[in-house]
Nucleic acid binder design. Structure first.
Length: 424
DNA sequence: TCTGGGGTCCTAGGACCC
DNA sequence: TCTGGGGTCCTAGGACCC
Protein backbone atom coordinates (compact mmCIF):
# COMPACT_ATOMS: atom_id res chain seq x y z
CA UNK A 1 0.00 0.00 0.00
CA UNK A 2 1.09 3.50 -0.85
CA UNK A 3 0.09 6.57 1.09
CA UNK A 4 0.18 10.18 0.05
CA UNK A 5 0.29 12.93 2.66
CA UNK A 6 -0.76 16.28 1.25
CA UNK A 7 -0.79 19.58 3.16
CA UNK A 8 -4.01 21.53 2.84
CA UNK A 9 -3.69 24.98 1.23
CA UNK A 10 -0.04 24.78 2.23
CA UNK A 11 1.31 28.33 1.85
CA UNK A 12 -1.80 29.89 3.36
CA UNK A 13 -1.68 27.37 6.21
CA UNK A 14 1.95 28.34 6.89
CA UNK A 15 0.99 32.01 7.11
CA UNK A 16 -1.82 31.12 9.53
CA UNK A 17 0.62 29.34 11.84
CA UNK A 18 2.31 32.69 12.47
CA UNK A 19 -0.79 34.84 12.26
CA UNK A 20 -3.91 33.17 13.65
CA UNK A 21 -5.92 36.28 12.80
CA UNK A 22 -5.94 34.90 9.28
CA UNK A 23 -8.00 31.89 10.35
CA UNK A 24 -11.47 31.70 8.81
CA UNK A 25 -10.72 34.63 6.51
CA UNK A 26 -10.26 34.45 2.75
CA UNK A 27 -6.48 34.50 2.26
CA UNK A 28 -4.32 34.10 -0.84
CA UNK A 29 -0.55 33.93 -1.30
CA UNK A 30 0.99 35.37 -4.46
CA UNK A 31 3.82 34.14 -6.67
CA UNK A 32 7.15 35.92 -6.89
CA UNK A 33 6.85 39.48 -8.15
CA UNK A 34 3.36 39.48 -6.62
CA UNK A 35 2.25 38.07 -9.94
CA UNK A 36 -0.57 35.60 -9.45
CA UNK A 37 -2.33 33.47 -6.87
CA UNK A 38 -0.50 30.26 -5.93
CA UNK A 39 -2.27 29.29 -2.71
CA UNK A 40 -5.82 29.88 -1.48
CA UNK A 41 -7.65 29.30 1.77
CA UNK A 42 -10.97 27.45 1.56
CA UNK A 43 -12.73 30.79 2.05
CA UNK A 44 -10.85 32.26 -0.95
CA UNK A 45 -11.75 29.21 -3.02
CA UNK A 46 -15.34 29.74 -1.93
CA UNK A 47 -15.26 33.24 -3.43
CA UNK A 48 -14.37 31.69 -6.78
CA UNK A 49 -10.79 33.01 -6.95
CA UNK A 50 -9.09 30.56 -9.30
CA UNK A 51 -5.58 29.12 -8.97
CA UNK A 52 -3.17 31.23 -11.04
CA UNK A 53 -5.43 34.26 -10.95
CA UNK A 54 -3.38 37.40 -11.72
CA UNK A 55 -3.15 39.61 -8.63
CA UNK A 56 -4.81 42.56 -10.34
CA UNK A 57 -7.90 40.46 -11.10
CA UNK A 58 -8.52 39.39 -7.50
CA UNK A 59 -10.78 42.35 -6.95
CA UNK A 60 -13.13 40.93 -9.60
CA UNK A 61 -13.90 38.06 -7.25
CA UNK A 62 -13.96 39.73 -3.87
CA UNK A 63 -17.65 40.51 -3.91
CA UNK A 64 -17.33 43.14 -1.17
CA UNK A 65 -15.54 40.69 1.12
CA UNK A 66 -12.16 41.31 2.64
CA UNK A 67 -9.49 39.20 1.02
CA UNK A 68 -6.05 39.09 2.62
CA UNK A 69 -3.38 39.11 -0.08
CA UNK A 70 0.14 38.08 0.92
CA UNK A 71 3.51 38.01 -0.80
CA UNK A 72 5.18 34.61 -0.71
CA UNK A 73 7.86 33.70 1.86
CA UNK A 74 9.32 30.56 0.37
CA UNK A 75 12.15 30.19 2.89
CA UNK A 76 9.58 29.97 5.67
CA UNK A 77 7.46 27.43 3.75
CA UNK A 78 10.54 25.30 3.07
CA UNK A 79 11.42 25.25 6.75
CA UNK A 80 7.91 24.19 7.78
CA UNK A 81 7.93 21.57 5.03
CA UNK A 82 11.18 20.12 6.39
CA UNK A 83 9.65 19.76 9.85
CA UNK A 84 6.66 17.89 8.47
CA UNK A 85 8.86 15.62 6.36
CA UNK A 86 10.94 14.80 9.44
CA UNK A 87 7.87 13.75 11.38
CA UNK A 88 6.73 11.57 8.48
CA UNK A 89 10.21 10.17 7.92
CA UNK A 90 10.45 9.06 11.54
CA UNK A 91 7.12 7.25 11.38
CA UNK A 92 6.98 5.51 7.99
CA UNK A 93 8.97 3.51 5.43
CA UNK A 94 10.48 4.78 2.17
CA UNK A 95 9.45 8.40 2.36
CA UNK A 96 9.55 10.03 -1.08
CA UNK A 97 9.30 13.80 -0.78
CA UNK A 98 7.41 14.64 -3.94
CA UNK A 99 7.06 18.41 -3.51
CA UNK A 100 7.20 21.06 -0.82
CA UNK A 101 3.78 19.98 0.47
CA UNK A 102 3.46 16.32 -0.50
CA UNK A 103 5.15 13.02 0.22
CA UNK A 104 4.52 9.40 -0.72
CA UNK A 105 5.43 6.48 1.54
CA UNK A 106 4.79 2.79 2.05
CA UNK A 107 2.51 1.46 4.77
CA UNK A 108 3.79 -1.15 7.20
CA UNK A 109 0.60 -3.17 7.80
CA UNK A 110 -1.56 -5.49 5.70
CA UNK A 111 -4.49 -4.56 7.88
CA UNK A 112 -6.50 -1.57 6.59
CA UNK A 113 -7.77 -0.62 10.01
CA UNK A 114 -4.30 -0.55 11.54
CA UNK A 115 -3.10 1.62 8.68
CA UNK A 116 -6.02 3.96 9.10
CA UNK A 117 -5.27 4.41 12.81
CA UNK A 118 -1.58 4.99 12.18
CA UNK A 119 -2.31 7.66 9.56
CA UNK A 120 -4.93 9.38 11.69
CA UNK A 121 -2.34 9.63 14.47
CA UNK A 122 0.15 11.15 12.04
CA UNK A 123 -2.35 13.78 10.91
CA UNK A 124 -2.92 14.74 14.57
CA UNK A 125 0.77 14.75 15.37
CA UNK A 126 1.66 17.04 12.48
CA UNK A 127 -1.10 19.45 13.44
CA UNK A 128 -0.02 19.42 17.07
CA UNK A 129 3.69 19.97 16.47
CA UNK A 130 3.73 22.07 13.30
CA UNK A 131 0.21 23.48 13.04
CA UNK A 132 -0.42 22.45 9.44
CA UNK A 133 -3.56 20.51 8.43
CA UNK A 134 -2.67 17.45 6.35
CA UNK A 135 -4.82 14.95 4.44
CA UNK A 136 -3.65 11.41 3.73
CA UNK A 137 -4.91 8.94 1.13
CA UNK A 138 -3.81 5.32 0.80
CA UNK A 139 -4.29 2.76 -1.95
CA UNK A 140 -2.44 0.05 -3.94
CA UNK A 141 -0.91 2.59 -6.37
CA UNK A 142 0.34 6.14 -6.13
CA UNK A 143 -2.23 7.44 -8.62
CA UNK A 144 -5.09 5.97 -6.56
CA UNK A 145 -3.52 7.24 -3.31
CA UNK A 146 -3.49 10.69 -4.84
CA UNK A 147 -7.20 10.50 -5.60
CA UNK A 148 -7.86 9.18 -2.10
CA UNK A 149 -6.06 12.15 -0.55
CA UNK A 150 -8.21 14.53 -2.60
CA UNK A 151 -11.33 12.81 -1.38
CA UNK A 152 -10.07 13.01 2.21
CA UNK A 153 -9.38 16.72 1.81
CA UNK A 154 -12.82 17.55 0.40
CA UNK A 155 -14.88 15.38 2.70
CA UNK A 156 -15.51 17.73 5.63
CA UNK A 157 -17.49 15.04 7.49
CA UNK A 158 -14.39 12.84 7.62
CA UNK A 159 -12.64 14.47 10.57
CA UNK A 160 -9.72 12.03 10.55
CA UNK A 161 -8.65 13.41 7.12
CA UNK A 162 -7.61 9.88 6.13
CA UNK A 163 -9.13 7.97 3.21
CA UNK A 164 -8.29 4.49 1.97
CA UNK A 165 -9.13 3.01 -1.42
CA UNK A 166 -8.49 -0.60 -0.57
CA UNK A 167 -11.40 -2.51 -2.07
CA UNK A 168 -12.53 -2.68 -5.68
CA UNK A 169 -15.93 -1.42 -4.64
CA UNK A 170 -14.46 1.69 -3.00
CA UNK A 171 -12.28 2.35 -6.07
CA UNK A 172 -15.21 1.98 -8.47
CA UNK A 173 -17.35 4.37 -6.46
CA UNK A 174 -14.68 7.04 -6.37
CA UNK A 175 -13.71 6.71 -10.06
CA UNK A 176 -17.34 7.27 -10.96
CA UNK A 177 -17.25 10.74 -9.44
CA UNK A 178 -13.68 11.70 -10.34
CA UNK A 179 -13.35 13.93 -13.38
CA UNK A 180 -10.58 12.99 -15.82
CA UNK A 181 -9.01 16.41 -15.32
CA UNK A 182 -8.56 15.55 -11.63
CA UNK A 183 -6.49 12.47 -12.40
CA UNK A 184 -2.78 12.83 -11.64
CA UNK A 185 -1.03 12.85 -15.03
CA UNK A 186 -3.88 14.32 -17.06
CA UNK A 187 -3.46 18.01 -17.69
CA UNK A 188 -5.25 20.60 -19.77
CA UNK A 189 -4.35 19.23 -23.21
CA UNK A 190 -5.15 15.61 -22.54
CA UNK A 191 -8.33 16.59 -20.73
CA UNK A 192 -9.50 18.49 -23.83
CA UNK A 193 -8.75 15.53 -26.08
CA UNK A 194 -10.55 13.11 -23.78
CA UNK A 195 -13.58 15.37 -23.41
CA UNK A 196 -13.89 15.70 -27.17
CA UNK A 197 -14.19 11.91 -27.28
CA UNK A 198 -16.88 11.96 -24.62
CA UNK A 199 -14.61 10.76 -21.81
CA UNK A 200 -15.42 12.93 -18.82
CA UNK A 201 -15.10 10.70 -15.73
CA UNK A 202 -12.39 8.30 -14.58
CA UNK A 203 -14.66 5.24 -14.74
CA UNK A 204 -14.91 5.78 -18.52
CA UNK A 205 -11.20 6.49 -18.86
CA UNK A 206 -10.18 3.15 -17.34
CA UNK A 207 -12.17 1.28 -20.00
CA UNK A 208 -10.42 2.88 -23.00
CA UNK A 209 -8.28 0.62 -25.22
CA UNK A 210 -4.54 1.20 -24.92
CA UNK A 211 -4.24 1.87 -28.65
CA UNK A 212 -6.49 4.90 -28.24
CA UNK A 213 -4.45 6.17 -25.30
CA UNK A 214 -1.29 5.85 -27.42
CA UNK A 215 -2.96 7.79 -30.22
CA UNK A 216 -3.71 10.83 -28.04
CA UNK A 217 -0.76 10.68 -25.64
CA UNK A 218 2.36 8.71 -24.87
CA UNK A 219 3.28 5.75 -22.71
CA UNK A 220 2.66 7.77 -19.55
CA UNK A 221 -1.05 7.92 -20.28
CA UNK A 222 -1.18 4.12 -20.52
CA UNK A 223 0.65 3.92 -17.20
CA UNK A 224 -1.84 6.30 -15.61
CA UNK A 225 -4.70 4.04 -16.71
CA UNK A 226 -2.95 0.94 -15.38
CA UNK A 227 -2.36 2.68 -12.06
CA UNK A 228 -6.07 3.43 -11.77
CA UNK A 229 -6.71 -0.25 -12.43
CA UNK A 230 -4.54 -1.07 -9.43
CA UNK A 231 -1.34 -2.01 -11.23
CA UNK A 232 1.75 -0.30 -9.83
CA UNK A 233 3.60 1.24 -12.81
CA UNK A 234 5.67 4.05 -11.33
CA UNK A 235 9.11 2.85 -10.36
CA UNK A 236 10.30 3.62 -6.86
CA UNK A 237 12.74 6.44 -6.66
CA UNK A 238 16.06 5.85 -4.96
CA UNK A 239 16.33 7.12 -1.40
CA UNK A 240 17.95 10.36 -2.38
CA UNK A 241 16.63 11.75 -5.60
CA UNK A 242 19.48 13.40 -7.47
CA UNK A 243 18.54 16.40 -9.56
CA UNK A 244 18.98 16.08 -13.31
CA UNK A 245 18.89 19.80 -13.80
CA UNK A 246 19.15 22.87 -11.60
CA UNK A 247 17.52 26.09 -12.62
CA UNK A 248 17.34 29.66 -11.41
CA UNK A 249 15.00 32.02 -13.11
CA UNK A 250 13.19 35.28 -12.43
CA UNK A 251 10.74 37.60 -14.03
CA UNK A 252 12.20 41.07 -13.55
CA UNK A 253 10.35 43.74 -11.64
CA UNK A 254 10.04 45.67 -14.91
CA UNK A 255 11.27 45.36 -18.49
CA UNK A 256 15.00 45.92 -19.02
CA UNK A 257 16.86 47.03 -22.10
CA UNK A 258 20.38 47.62 -20.90
CA UNK A 259 22.72 44.72 -21.55
CA UNK A 260 24.68 45.17 -18.34
CA UNK A 261 21.56 45.04 -16.17
CA UNK A 262 20.41 41.79 -17.74
CA UNK A 263 23.84 40.20 -17.64
CA UNK A 264 23.96 41.05 -13.90
CA UNK A 265 20.82 38.99 -13.49
CA UNK A 266 22.29 36.10 -15.51
CA UNK A 267 25.44 36.27 -13.41
CA UNK A 268 23.44 36.20 -10.21
CA UNK A 269 21.31 33.22 -11.34
CA UNK A 270 24.42 31.33 -12.47
CA UNK A 271 26.01 31.84 -9.05
CA UNK A 272 22.90 30.56 -7.29
CA UNK A 273 22.84 27.47 -9.52
CA UNK A 274 26.52 26.76 -8.86
CA UNK A 275 26.07 27.08 -5.10
CA UNK A 276 23.15 24.65 -5.15
CA UNK A 277 25.14 22.28 -7.36
CA UNK A 278 27.96 22.15 -4.80
CA UNK A 279 25.49 21.66 -1.96
CA UNK A 280 24.32 18.56 -3.80
CA UNK A 281 27.95 17.46 -4.22
CA UNK A 282 27.56 17.30 -7.96
CA UNK A 283 28.96 18.82 -11.13
CA UNK A 284 27.41 19.83 -14.43
CA UNK A 285 28.71 20.02 -17.98
CA UNK A 286 26.05 22.14 -19.69
CA UNK A 287 24.89 25.68 -18.99
CA UNK A 288 21.79 27.04 -20.70
CA UNK A 289 20.75 30.68 -20.63
CA UNK A 290 17.29 31.80 -21.66
CA UNK A 291 15.95 35.31 -22.09
CA UNK A 292 12.61 36.61 -23.17
CA UNK A 293 10.59 39.79 -23.50
CA UNK A 294 7.19 40.53 -22.01
CA UNK A 295 4.32 38.44 -23.44
CA UNK A 296 1.80 40.97 -22.31
CA UNK A 297 3.26 44.10 -23.85
CA UNK A 298 1.71 44.36 -27.30
CA UNK A 299 3.47 47.70 -27.79
CA UNK A 300 7.00 46.21 -27.69
CA UNK A 301 8.65 43.87 -30.19
CA UNK A 302 8.88 40.40 -28.67
CA UNK A 303 12.07 38.37 -28.62
CA UNK A 304 13.05 35.17 -26.86
CA UNK A 305 15.99 32.86 -27.27
CA UNK A 306 18.18 30.38 -25.47
CA UNK A 307 21.72 29.14 -25.82
CA UNK A 308 23.46 26.12 -24.32
CA UNK A 309 27.17 25.89 -23.78
CA UNK A 310 28.88 22.60 -23.22
CA UNK A 311 31.86 23.04 -20.94
CA UNK A 312 35.16 21.27 -21.40
CA UNK A 313 34.51 19.06 -18.41
CA UNK A 314 32.03 18.64 -15.58
CA UNK A 315 32.49 21.39 -13.03
CA UNK A 316 30.87 22.94 -10.01
CA UNK A 317 33.05 26.05 -9.97
CA UNK A 318 31.12 29.31 -9.83
CA UNK A 319 33.85 30.93 -11.90
CA UNK A 320 33.55 28.44 -14.77
CA UNK A 321 29.77 28.32 -14.67
CA UNK A 322 29.39 32.10 -14.60
CA UNK A 323 31.95 32.53 -17.39
CA UNK A 324 30.08 30.12 -19.65
CA UNK A 325 26.69 31.53 -18.76
CA UNK A 326 27.90 34.95 -19.87
CA UNK A 327 29.24 33.49 -23.14
CA UNK A 328 25.78 31.99 -23.76
CA UNK A 329 24.11 35.27 -22.85
CA UNK A 330 26.32 37.27 -25.21
CA UNK A 331 25.26 34.91 -27.98
CA UNK A 332 21.57 35.59 -27.61
CA UNK A 333 21.36 39.18 -26.40
CA UNK A 334 20.00 41.43 -29.15
CA UNK A 335 20.20 45.20 -29.01
CA UNK A 336 16.89 47.05 -29.26
CA UNK A 337 14.61 44.60 -27.45
CA UNK A 338 13.08 44.82 -23.99
CA UNK A 339 13.60 41.87 -21.65
CA UNK A 340 11.35 40.70 -18.83
CA UNK A 341 12.79 37.37 -17.80
CA UNK A 342 16.03 35.44 -17.77
CA UNK A 343 17.02 32.02 -16.52
CA UNK A 344 20.09 29.87 -16.10
CA UNK A 345 19.91 26.09 -16.13
CA UNK A 346 22.59 23.51 -15.38
CA UNK A 347 22.15 20.06 -16.90
CA UNK A 348 23.99 16.81 -17.49
CA UNK A 349 24.59 16.67 -13.75
CA UNK A 350 26.71 13.95 -12.19
CA UNK A 351 27.66 13.23 -8.59
CA UNK A 352 31.23 14.27 -7.75
CA UNK A 353 32.06 10.71 -6.80
CA UNK A 354 31.53 9.51 -10.38
CA UNK A 355 33.79 12.07 -12.01
CA UNK A 356 37.31 11.69 -13.26
CA UNK A 357 39.65 14.61 -13.51
CA UNK A 358 39.90 15.88 -17.03
CA UNK A 359 43.54 15.99 -18.16
CA UNK A 360 43.07 19.46 -19.63
CA UNK A 361 41.45 21.09 -16.64
CA UNK A 362 42.59 18.92 -13.75
CA UNK A 363 44.91 21.29 -11.98
CA UNK A 364 42.67 24.32 -12.38
CA UNK A 365 39.71 22.28 -11.20
CA UNK A 366 41.52 21.31 -8.01
CA UNK A 367 42.53 24.90 -7.25
CA UNK A 368 39.09 26.31 -7.99
CA UNK A 369 37.56 23.51 -5.94
CA UNK A 370 39.53 24.66 -2.89
CA UNK A 371 38.49 28.24 -3.51
CA UNK A 372 34.81 27.27 -3.81
CA UNK A 373 35.00 25.25 -0.58
CA UNK A 374 36.43 28.26 1.20
CA UNK A 375 33.74 30.58 -0.16
CA UNK A 376 30.94 28.15 0.71
CA UNK A 377 32.12 27.71 4.28
CA UNK A 378 32.47 31.45 4.82
CA UNK A 379 29.01 32.08 3.37
CA UNK A 380 27.58 29.29 5.46
CA UNK A 381 29.03 30.72 8.62
CA UNK A 382 28.50 34.44 8.09
CA UNK A 383 25.50 34.65 5.75
CA UNK A 384 24.72 33.49 2.25
CA UNK A 385 25.97 36.52 0.33
CA UNK A 386 29.18 37.49 2.14
CA UNK A 387 31.43 36.50 -0.76
CA UNK A 388 30.21 36.85 -4.31
CA UNK A 389 31.62 37.69 -7.71
CA UNK A 390 32.11 41.45 -7.90
CA UNK A 391 29.43 42.56 -10.40
CA UNK A 392 26.67 40.98 -8.28
CA UNK A 393 27.39 42.96 -5.14
CA UNK A 394 24.74 45.54 -5.82
CA UNK A 395 21.05 44.89 -5.79
CA UNK A 396 20.23 44.52 -9.47
CA UNK A 397 17.76 46.51 -11.53
CA UNK A 398 16.17 43.15 -12.27
CA UNK A 399 15.11 42.45 -8.67
CA UNK A 400 11.51 41.28 -8.45
CA UNK A 401 9.00 43.50 -6.74
CA UNK A 402 7.22 42.38 -3.61
CA UNK A 403 4.71 44.36 -1.57
CA UNK A 404 5.11 47.11 -4.06
CA UNK A 405 1.98 47.35 -6.07
CA UNK A 406 -1.13 49.46 -5.94
CA UNK A 407 -4.18 48.30 -4.09
CA UNK A 408 -7.00 49.47 -6.30
CA UNK A 409 -9.75 48.32 -4.07
CA UNK A 410 -10.31 49.04 -0.40
CA UNK A 411 -11.43 45.44 -0.12
CA UNK A 412 -7.86 44.32 -0.49
CA UNK A 413 -5.60 44.21 2.54
CA UNK A 414 -1.95 44.15 1.67
CA UNK A 415 0.31 43.02 4.44
CA UNK A 416 3.94 44.00 4.18
CA UNK A 417 7.16 44.04 6.14
CA UNK A 418 6.62 40.54 7.50
CA UNK A 419 9.51 39.01 5.66
CA UNK A 420 11.94 38.76 8.54
CA UNK A 421 9.66 37.95 11.42
CA UNK A 422 10.28 34.22 11.33
CA UNK A 423 13.11 32.83 13.44
CA UNK A 424 13.71 29.12 12.87
C1' DT B 1 -0.50 49.36 -14.99
C1' DC B 2 -0.38 44.67 -13.11
C1' DT B 3 0.15 37.62 -15.35
C1' DG B 4 5.70 32.66 -11.05
C1' DG B 5 9.46 29.41 -10.50
C1' DG B 6 10.86 25.42 -10.30
C1' DG B 7 11.16 20.35 -12.07
C1' DT B 8 10.40 15.49 -14.90
C1' DC B 9 9.72 12.44 -18.87
C1' DC B 10 8.70 11.24 -23.73
C1' DT B 11 8.90 11.61 -28.75
C1' DA B 12 10.02 13.04 -33.37
C1' DG B 13 13.40 14.19 -36.35
C1' DG B 14 18.06 15.17 -37.80
C1' DA B 15 22.93 13.98 -37.92
C1' DC B 16 25.89 10.55 -38.03
C1' DC B 17 27.76 5.61 -38.10
C1' DC B 18 28.56 1.02 -40.66
C1' DT C 1 12.14 5.16 -63.78
C1' DC C 2 15.10 4.05 -60.29
C1' DT C 3 17.65 5.39 -54.54
C1' DG C 4 19.00 -0.17 -48.22
C1' DG C 5 18.72 -1.40 -43.63
C1' DG C 6 19.97 -1.19 -39.72
C1' DG C 7 21.75 1.41 -35.52
C1' DT C 8 22.98 5.52 -31.86
C1' DC C 9 23.02 10.03 -30.03
C1' DC C 10 21.43 14.63 -29.52
C1' DT C 11 18.10 18.33 -29.38
C1' DA C 12 13.84 20.86 -29.45
C1' DG C 13 9.46 20.89 -28.18
C1' DG C 14 5.45 19.29 -25.86
C1' DA C 15 3.17 17.29 -22.21
C1' DC C 16 2.81 16.76 -17.31
C1' DC C 17 3.59 17.87 -12.01
C1' DC C 18 3.75 21.11 -7.70
Amino acid sequence: MYALADCNNFFVSCERVFNPQLNEKPVVVLSNNDGCVISRSNEAKGLGIPMGCPAFQIKNYTNATNVVVLSARHILYRDISNRIMHILGDAVLNLEVYSVDEAFFMLPNDDDEKNRLLLAELVKKIYKYVGIPVSIGFAPTRTLAKIASHVAKKDTKNTSRVMGLTTQQAVDEVLQRTKVEDIWGIGRRLNAKLLSSGIDYANKFVKLPQSFLHSIGNINLVRTQQELLGKDCISINPVTIAHKSIMNSRTFGHVLKNKKEISDAVLSFAQACATQLRQEQAAASTVTVYVRGDHFRQDLPFYSNSCSVRMQAHTSSTIEIVRNALIAFNNIYREGFYYRKASVMLSDIKPMTELQLNIFTGDKEVRQGRLMNAIDSINKRYGSKQIMLAPSLTRGEWAPQQNNFNAQSKNLHFYSGMSNTFKP
